[in-house]
Design a protein around this nucleic acid. Structure first.
Lengths: 267, 267
DNA sequence: GAGCTTCTACGTACGCTGTACCTAGAGAAG
DNA sequence: CTTCTCTAGGTACAGCGTACGTAGAAGCTC
């Protein structure tokens, strides 16, 4: 139904023939009398709302194009610059028209998130080497996070699971199937895996963003270490060598995460 | 994420008579003549600003009382309810007076974060059982997160390190000293440990918050599983037993995290 | 076709946000 | 004493999310 969205197509403003199937029968909610003025109950989850109902004029935009516009703004100016007005203006639409596509701004963020997740390229089949497959997944994810610096924060703050996130989940489950671990355990492992990557990417960004911030942080930490109030911190500082190569830190930490993922939970 | 945005100063509306400061050197950072009205450079990190300089009237509030007021609001009504106006009103102060204590709202969040971290109760010395100490730390942290539902999101979104966070760090380093791992590795391990706890607490909350959300999610996932597009997800669903006890899930996942923490990184 | 219904587009307006800027006045330093 | 720095707090502004209402297009049923 939804995507199979090649990311190479930036945005086709109106694909003239978009034979989508509106055939979704109805909400499984409360069977209402016909002719009720209020729709029974719109789902909160945007993925449960059909993109198009088939009545009335054809929408001038699509979820994909809206997400692409928002992502463009976020990539260029940060997530804070993504406002309903900005996105609508980027689409050439009136501000309030956006609310025909997206009931709340949160849902716009959900669209952005899932559109970004569409950038993964999964192999058709797991290679058989679980560690290698997970490492590949991790490096892809890090690359996507670097392309979209706002993404880690979004992933960490929202529980959204769109169609593309489901594809990611499915792939992760496929890759880890060989471990023999039960499905629930592998889902928990995925959450850990994901969380680690988000945090690492976020750390990377804050470190890279401000030289001033970094300098202040170093000053603050050394001052704290010298104060004598934090002896173990001081000792860690004293024994630390050079700042360590970030790529090495990533691979090292990733190894540990993968280890945790692959270990059977039974004590 | 948010900052790094130059003020841009589009236009000062109209200052009819603004006689002083004709040659305002504008951005700080330029070495000024002595006796210049602008202070040389205020640090961005709030912990590097002295709480009190000793001149002028005594402030009517303290960082602690401000943080306590903000935390009270956040606990009762969520982090979104914490606005400068609300906090100032809770203190019985004018809105703009708050800016004498906190240069930006971000720093108010930093104060809140560190005040919440102050709730830890660390033993004077590590017990010698690293796993047990870490498990205790984790359970304390989870309890704090449950007391302050807004905290995990803050911790995940801000790199702030206040004095109490330093105390936490020091304790973690003390506990893990027995592993013999180098300081840098233990810091990375702490980040993983922390991140896991934040994410778990956050998941716990979103799951507990909305029965409707949960119901929709289950419907969405089962529908996705039945669609045939996500075979491994479907299989995981099919083989899953009952929803599993959350406390068990926590302890199980915690075990894996601790395992990852304690494992030497060298392959 | 007519007529009804349902959708889209979008302007206006409201309450809220963070905060720049300014005026008073308190109190320590010289 | 004077002088200077600090604090308290009001006013104002640009921008936010979005509730609400109107106008008209497009599909369904007859």
């Amino acid at each position: 139904m939804p995507s199979s969205k090649p990311p190479s197509s930036p945005d086709s403003p109106d694909s003239p023939d978009n034979p989508d199937q509106p055939g979704r029968p109805d909400q499984p909610g409360s069977p209402d009398q016909p002719g009720r003025p209020t729709p029974p109950e719109a789902p909160e989850l945007i993925w449960l709302r059909p993109e198009r109902t088939g009545r009335g004029p054809r929408p001038a935009h699509s979820r994909d194009s809206i997400a692409a516009a928002a992502i463009g703004i976020a990539d260029a100016e940060g997530l804070d610059a993504v406002s309903m007005r900005r996105v609508a203006a980027a689409l050439g639409a009136g501000t309030m028209s956006l609310y025909n596509y997206v009931p709340k701004k949160e849902h716009l963020l959900d669209l952005m998130l899932d559109a970004a997740v569409a950038e993964y390229r999964f192999p058709a089949e797991p290679s058989g080497d679980v560690r290698a497959d997970l490492a590949d997944l991790a490096h892809q994810q890090l690359a996507i996070f670097r392309r979209h610096p706002w993404l880690p924060g979004l992933v960490l703050s929202r529980p959204g699971i769109g169609p593309n996130a489901l594809r990611y989940t499915d792939h992760f489950l496929a890759v880890t199937a060989a471990t023999g671990l039960p499905g629930g355990t592998r889902m928990e492992a995925m959450a850990m895996f994901n969380g680690f990557l988000c945090q690492f990417a976020q750390y990377e960004q804050t470190a890279a963003a401000g030289a001033k911030w970094q300098a202040e942080m170093v000053g603050y930490l050394t001052q704290a270490a010298m104060s004598g109030q934090y002896p173990h911190l001081a000792q860690a500082f004293a024994t630390a060598g050079r700042p360590a190569d970030p790529a090495r830190v990533f691979d090292r930490s990733l190894d540990r995460v993968i280890l945790a993922v692959l270990t059977p939970p039974g004590e």
